[in-house]
Design a protein around this nucleic acid. Structure first.
Length: 451
DNA sequence: GTAAACACCAAGGCCTTATGTGCT
DNA sequence: AGCACAATCTCTCTTGGTGTTTA
């Protein structure tokens, strides 16, 4: 009798001599000389079953034995029209694929509906402890069953388990055969080479990815599509703005560097460009930047060029002129709820001191962080200033004005920050996002790239 | 005895911007 | 003429996990 079982992140097929022929079309299946059977990455489980079924072979599925435990999930939640459409698209795609929806569009409830539709043991994978807490709360109220946790110092498995990416990476080879459905929240994290072992080591045939920005500049989303499934549904912010999300407006404000900053910037930029010219390096693709980085290890002039570029960046992103402009914006929006975003922690603390605004950076402890956000929520604070901390994975209270003092060229970062001010307003008012850009610097291109 | 706080490590995403070279 | 494509260790910021110290 042929058996199918899970072991160390792989699926083993043993027994029947016809198995080899049945699986011949699956490229990732290898013969296992030790057992005389075959094995493949756990993610091939569904394909192997299909191949065995197609060949008319009987088998004892010991993976499924642990997977189907008679879970009966129900929900009372009514999906919005687009949420229903997204779910249907995913179900039609053989329950594999990624749904791309803006922050605040209710991705969680779609996952809940997917879990109801399948009613199998489910693993939810999330990037931060904060999100883990939110998911566990959500699932416990929705389903009234115990919810397990991998991460944050706890390793407890239940039929419904929520894990961090890091813990999932550590546990996947062990528990990878125990789930019938896996949900990847903020699925773009699977672009990281290490994390890609998580979906590889799981047998779960049903796979759902959720994100606000599927595509990545490094094209790693193509690998995500292989591991989780293709994008099956997408809506952009503009599709929901004014309806389920607030209307918004982006205003770019151009700022002149101060005379001193201009001097520093031009000098540093010239050092950088000069090196490029004399060294034969060109800045055309990402690999050229890597090349420069590589050379800087041995070539002092390359290192000087890199540092000069860094100086130029600092000047244009943290310009005093921006801080002065910020003073005017804050005065104008005295009665609004404002989040200020920057790219550097130094600038966060400079602003915090000058305007007496609570700062949040990676150095802010969890307790203090929670306290600041609570007071922002209840109205004690009208304004917070944050580095990259609030971009993703934190439940940030609603604001109606965002000020981008500095940021990277990342479209993802921009979308996430915009999403912070888009929760529908009670009075139907428009959310405002200011972008401060230093004129005649590389920042103009950076700002262009993220749109 | 326990939990919070801390320091440490590894990892991910980002960083640039218009030139030569070799191929078709 | 037009096109694709170059190659791997610096910086900054943030996070989770682990192990140790402190209260």
């Amino acid at each position: 009798m042929t058996t199918l079982r899970f072991e160390d992140g792989t699926v083993h097929v043993d027994g029947d001599p016809d198995v080899g022929a049945a699986l011949a079309d699956l490229s990732s299946v290898e013969a296992d000389p030790r057992s005389g059977g075959y094995r493949a990455p756990a993610m091939q489980y569904a394909a192997i079953r299909d191949a065995l079924d197609a060949a008319g072979l009987n088998y004892d599925d010991r993976v499924a034995a642990t997977t189907h435990s008679g879970l009966a999930l129900t929900t009372t939640y009514d999906l919005r029209e687009y949420q229903r459409a997204a779910l249907d698209a995913w179900l039609d795609g053989d329950s594999r694929g990624v749904i791309e929806l803006p922050t605040g569009a209710g991705k969680t409830v779609i996952a809940v509906a997917a879990m109801v539709a399948h009613s199998v043991p489910t693993l939810v994978v999330v990037p931060t402890i904060d999100l883990q807490d939110q998911w566990i709360r959500e699932l416990e109220t929705e389903f009234d069953v115990p919810v397990g946790r991998f991460g944050g110092g706890e390793q407890r498995q239940e039929a419904l388990t929520v894990s961090t990416y890091d813990s999932a990476y550590l546990r996947a080879d062990d528990v990878g055969g125990d789930f019938g459905l896996v949900v990847f929240d903020e699925v773009h994290h699977l672009g990281g080479a290490g994390y890609q072992d998580i979906p590889r080591f799981l047998t779960a045939p049903a796979r759902l990815g959720l994100t606000a920005t599927f595509e990545r500049p490094d094209d790693a989303h193509e690998q995500v599509a292989e591991l989780v499934g293709p994008r099956v549904y997408e809506l952009a912010v503009d599709d929901l703005a004014g309806d389920h999300l607030a209307d918004y407006e982006v205003r770019r404000i151009e700022v002149e560097l101060t005379a001193e900053e201009r001097g520093t910037y031009d000098e540093a930029q010239e050092t950088f460009v000069n090196y490029l010219r004399t060294s034969g390096l060109s800045m055309q693709s990402g690999s050229d930047y890597q090349k420069l980085v590589m050379r800087s290890g041995t070539d002092p002039r390359a290192r000087e060029a890199l540092l000069a570029k860094q100086r130029a960046r600092d000047v244009m992103m943290n310009s005093d002129a921006k801080v002065d402009k910020l003073a005017r914006l804050l005065a104008r929006h005295r009665d609004d709820r404002v989040i200020i975003f920057t790219a550097s922690t130094d600038l966060v603390y400079r602003i915090a001191r000058r305007f007496l605004v609570p700062p949040i950076t990676s150095e802010t402890g969890t307790k203090e962080r929670r306290e600041i956000l609570t007071r922002f929520r209840d109205g004690t604070y009208d304004t917070v200033v944050a580095a990259n901390v609030l971009d993703e994975g934190v439940d940030v209270p609603d604001a109606n004005v965002g000020i981008l003092l500095s940021g990277s060229g990342s479209e993802r970062e921009f979308t996430q920050r915009l999403g912070r001010i888009l929760r529908p307003k009670a009075d139907g008012s428009t959310a405002l996002l200011y972008e401060l850009v230093s004129v005649e610097t590389a920042e103009e291109r950076v700002a262009e790239r993220r749109r």
